[in-house]
Structures are given as C-alpha cells and as structure tokens.
Design a protein around this nucleic acid. Structure first.
Lengths: 350, 350
DNA sequence: TTCAATTCCGTGCACGGTAACGGAATTATT
DNA sequence: AATAATTCCGTTACCGTGCACGGAATTGAA
C-alpha cells in the first residue's frame, strides 16, 4: 500500500525557507515568530494539508495523557462497579495511543470524600476528566476549577444544566420511565402497580429516579389512566423490613400485582418475590447488576432496563482522548444512549 | 504523574552487556543471535518486565497496519451498510495508533466478485482480515491462504465450523430465534403465527435464518405446542406479489394474526400491514435497518431484534489491531453479542 | 556610529526502536 | 597454518517532533 507520501514539518520548513524549529513554534503557537513567517507557514500548512505524526509527537514528549474518572467507589455488585469496568475495557487501543484512564473513587454518601477526590484529580493535572454529577453544588465548584485550568470534562449517567462540558453520555431518563411502563403493562387492563422506593429518596432525590418516575407516571396517565399506582418505601439495609413491607401492602391490596423500581436495587425484592410466585406478575427494574440479572434468570424479575454504564465511561474516555490527542471536539454534546431491554432470553450474552 | 521509569531496549542492552541491535534481533527473533545471548536477553526482559514503546516502533518502521474488511457492498438501507458503518466509527483512537481499516466490498450474490475481492485483499498484504462467511466453500479456500501467509482473521455475523480464526463476533443465532418467539407470544393462548420467508431461502439457505427458525420452532414447541405455524414465500423484488401473498393467506386463515421474519427484510411487509391495521397483531423482525426502524415508529412492526453489526465489525477490527500492534490474542474466540430488543419506545436513541 | 536590548530564527540533541552494513570472532576448508 | 566461510554482534543512520540553547538580525538608546 504505497500511501501518498506523508508530509512532515521538514517539508514545510523547506517550502517556506524557514527551519523546522520555526515551523514547530508556529504549530504550537508559542510565539517568537514574526507575523510574516507565521502567516507564510500557516499558508503552506493549509496548502500541503499537513497533519502531524502522532507517534513522533508522543515519542518526543514522552508524556502519557491522563484521563481521570471521578465516580463513586465500586462496591461489589453495585451500579458503579459496572461503570468502573468500562475504564479498563476497550481502552487498550487507546493505551497504545498514549492515553491512560485512572479511577478516582469516592464515597457517594460522603461529600467530603468527593471534595478530596476532586483535589487529587486537580493535583494530577489530567488531560481530561470523566465524572458523574452526584453532588450538584460541589460538582459545579469542581467543574469551574477545571474550566479555569482548561481541562475538558465529560458527564456520564446524569447531567447538570450547566454548559461547559465537552460531552455527556447517558440514558434518556424520562424516556426510560416511559419504556419501563410499556414493559410493565403488557396486558390491556392492568389493575394496579406498586412503586418501591428506597427510603433515602424522600430526602435526597437522585436525578435519575425522579425523571424515570415522571416518565412512568405520564405513560400510565396516557395509556392506563385507571390503573392504581401506589408507593412504598423501604430501607436497603433492612431485608426483613422489605419483606414485611411487601407482605403488608399486598395483603391489603390483592388486586395489585405488578412492581417497579426506578433505581438499580430491584434485587432487594427477590426474597419476597421468590416466596410469593405469581406467573402473571410483572416486575421491572433497572440496571444489569449481577444480582438483578440472576433474578431475571430465575424468573422473579420480568424485565431489566439497562444502560451500559461501562460503555458510557468508555465513550467519555474516548471523547476526551481524541480531544487531547487530536484536538477533536465531538460533533454533538449530548449522547443519549440506547436503553437495553433485558429478559431471561437475552440476558446471557450481556 | 511520575510514572515508574519505563525501561527501554537500551536498559536491556546495558544489563546484558550486549548492544541494542542484538536486543532488537531477539525481540523480533530474526536470528543471528547465539543461543547464549538469546537466553540472557530473554531473561532480562522478563526480569525487568520490558514492554516495547509502540509509538517508537511505529515511527521507526513507518508502516501503518492495514485491516481489510471483506463484506458485501453496502447498498443503501441494507444490513451490510450497517456493518460497514462500523469501519470508520470508533476506530479513531486506533487510527492514532497506526491502524487503518479498509473495506473490500463485493457482490453478495456473485461468487466471482467475492473471489476478486479476496485476491485484492491478499495483494494488499494486510495485518488482519475481517470477513463474513457468506460463501462457505470459497471462504474456506480464502482462509486457507490467509493461514499460509500467517495473516490472522476474524469472522462476524456467522461462523463456519473451522478453527483457524482469531475471534468471532456475532449474535447467538439459535437463541435469537428463541428470543424472537418469546417476544411474539406475549399472550398466553396464541392461535397461530406466520413465518414469511424470501424465496431464495428455498435454494440457498443462509446460516442465520436457518438457525433462527430452528430456535423459534423449538420455543413454540415447548411453550405453545398448539399454535399453528405456517410458512409463505415471497420475492423481495416483487412488492405487489408480497401484498397479494399476504392478502391470500390471511383471508384463508383469519385466526392467524402474528407475523415473523428471520432475515432483515421485515420492512417489505409494511405496505400490507399499514393497510390492514390490527392492534392485537404482533410483528417481529430482525436488524435495525432504517426502513425497519421506521416501521417500528409507526407501529406496523412490534419488535425488532438487533445485533449491532457495526459493533461486531468494530470489535473485530480492534481484536486484529491489538494482535498486530501488541501481539495480543483475545482470551475467548467466540464472542456472542447481546441481542437488542427494540420497540417504539427505545428505538430513537439506537 | 556604537553598543545594548529585543525579536526572531537555526542548530542539534533527545525520544525508543528498526534494520542495513560491516567487522570481529569463531568455525570450516584446503 | 593460512585462507575462506559462517556465525554473531556493534555501529550508525534514520523515523518525525519537541524543545533548549545560542546566535543572527533587527530595533532602540546613547
């Protein structure tokens, strides 16, 4: 494959009668070049269509690009563990291109640990940052600092109203509630559905669950207005409480069958569900945690809606890498990812 | 970020008392090295955990790696157009790493054009080949030649029984028929279903459709043994014929409602479906062609099962790139990809 | 006009690896 | 033992960029 000869800065130097040192100064516009020479060089660059040789550049400055990934610590079986798995995966070709992604974990329930992680990130002087905006105010403070330092950043999972980010990768949250409702209501005349929420929701509402619930309720309003919809609250750390809560509710409301949760914790209901089998009940939850997928396999959960958090992380890293390496800016800012419908028949290869 | 110092071939040269020329010869085992020196070098390499610097290597040999993608010409709106779109996308970080993927299209109905494309690929001396085994015999001949030349290759879409490939990326075909049946039979007592096949199937059975049909029939046998299942054959190039065929069948069998196709051509049925709306009818097809997705949006098709052909191509290219650049061999050979369930509620962001 | 201060630019080494070339050391041949 | 043939290995010139250093050219001040 005889490519058309790649042109180098030497070619440009020769063409302009200048030296490669000067051409280099122009390319990285770090001054010390007369206006006349500058323009002449730029002209020839455009004319010949010069493109820098990435390996040579990388080799010369011997610098690896660091992409910091600022997400909650990945406790085993948690949603953020899935996200974290996107850091290593699929990034190998990029590693070869001189990009290294490094996680900066923090405790998602402790704002102080978030602040500490942010400080560490700034200290590491990364070429880019991937983060999930869990703490709204603090996130704003941090991204402000990033902007000051000229460090680009991408959001995943959710997205604040600000505007300075390079790109966002996440599920369309409102629509996912809609989809969820459609999967729950296969039958025409659904009588009732129960929304199970974790107790924390009452105080600290997370963006994803709020939006999903909104989409869900709108769908039901449009398509099943007569359906009774109830809410119960449970404590994730109290399995017995969950069991008795469900027992209590369903003994009072035998006409209600279907169950939905808008966070990733549907697996918490498995003990009760397994103890009260009902082939006509539909149970819909979110996210492909291992425990959730197991529940899908044994039939206690009907459908999971997945969003591939690992892909979100990977794409965000890629976007930042391309920005760092080639100066590329993604054509769109907001990338709403596909919502995967998981059933027992397609969960195996997920 | 002060990394632990990267060790270079110079370090190894110093440690062994040899020169970097010798170390290089060992690394690429191109002979002219005494057994003793060879082993000494290998020992130190292991000891220090040497890893070659990819950019330096790439820069020095100034060679781009070529990955040939041997798939049918991407006619607009066809399945292979989707696959071809994976060639450019997401490969950018790899382009930076010195890998270029180039399509070698051929006519999927003309074995001669396939042979010609194969010849071109061999001539181009690629570092790897991605191909879909449409012509069984000829594919075997070609992969034999690749093996002779030591060129690794990956299959996508489908996979022959041979064993020399580096990796395979595709949908689990049999299981996809199973999934398809589950999506078709939401209701308990389904009366009948119609399988629409393209006429060519009778003579040249493609692997994917055969396997899908097998999975479908097995599911029905297990879960809905009383369901009547019929087959009709249509000619893709004769829209009127399709219309009258369906008209004819359904006037004779009003009790049958649901329709399924195992190739990517479900969109061929849209004119008839649109003219005969039925809210209780379920129509399931495969692959996210634009025409199919449009049918999903307007409600004529209920569910599509997608396999992300672009991802398959991308992953195959990546695997070959890693092999070429770093000598990595994928841990598994067979990668069965997730089957996406598409409905009108999640088709937008696909 | 002369010398100092800027501004601008060329030179040359480094980055880590590749591969051609030729020479030293070893072995084979007469 | 002398010469030829091998085997083995070191040297060296790249690949295209980045960047420090120093010097030439230009401008300013005296």
């Amino acid at each position: 494959m005889a490519q058309n000869e790649k042109i180098t800065i030497n070619d440009i130097a020769r063409r302009t009668g200048l030296s490669k040192g000067t051409v280099d100064r122009v390319l990285h516009n770090r001054g010390e070049v007369s206006r006349k020479s500058y323009e002449r060089v730029m002209e020839v660059i455009r004319e010949l269509g010069y493109e820098p040789n990435v390996y040579a550049s990388l080799l010369a400055k011997g610098k690896k690009h660091l992409v910091a990934v600022l997400i909650p610590a990945s406790e085993p079986g948690s949603f953020w563990e899935l996200a974290a798995s996107g850091i290593g995966r699929g990034v190998d070709p990029m590693t070869a291109a001189g990009v290294e992604a490094v996680p900066f974990p923090y405790d998602q329930y402790d704002i102080e640990s978030f602040r500490a992680a942010c400080a560490k990130v700034l200290e590491a002087e990364p070429s880019g940052v991937v983060l999930a905006p869990l703490f709204q105010g603090e996130t704003e403070v941090f991204t402000g600092k990033l902007a000051e330092s000229g460090i680009p950043y991408c959001f995943i999972d959710s997205r604040p109203d600000s505007n300075g980010y390079l790109a966002y990768f996440g599920m369309p949250l409102y629509k996912s509630g809609y989809l969820c409702a459609d999967q729950l209501t296969r039958e025409r005349n659904i009588r009732g559905a129960l929304i199970v929420r974790v107790r924390r929701d009452r105080y600290q509402q997370s963006d994803p669950t709020v939006n999903r619930r909104a989409g869900f309720l709108d769908y039901m309003l449009e398509n099943a207005p007569d359906c009774k919809i109830d809410n119960v609250f449970v404590d994730p750390n109290d399995p017995d409480g969950i069991y008795t809560t469900l027992d209590g509710y369903f003994s009072e409301h035998p006409e209600v069958r279907h169950i939905v949760m808008f966070n990733s914790r549907i697996h918490l209901l498995v003990p009760w569900l397994a103890a009260h089998p009902d082939p006509d009940r539909r149970v819909v939850g979110f996210d492909n945690l291992k425990a959730n997928m197991d529940a899908l396999r044994d039939g206690t959960v009907s459908v999971l809606i997945g969003q591939r958090p690992d892909e979100q992380v990977r794409l965000a890293i890629e976007a930042l890498a391309e920005h760092a390496l080639l100066g590329k800016v993604p054509p769109r800012k907001d990338h709403f990812m596909h919502m995967d419908i998981l059933t027992r028949y397609n969960v195996e290869d997920y």
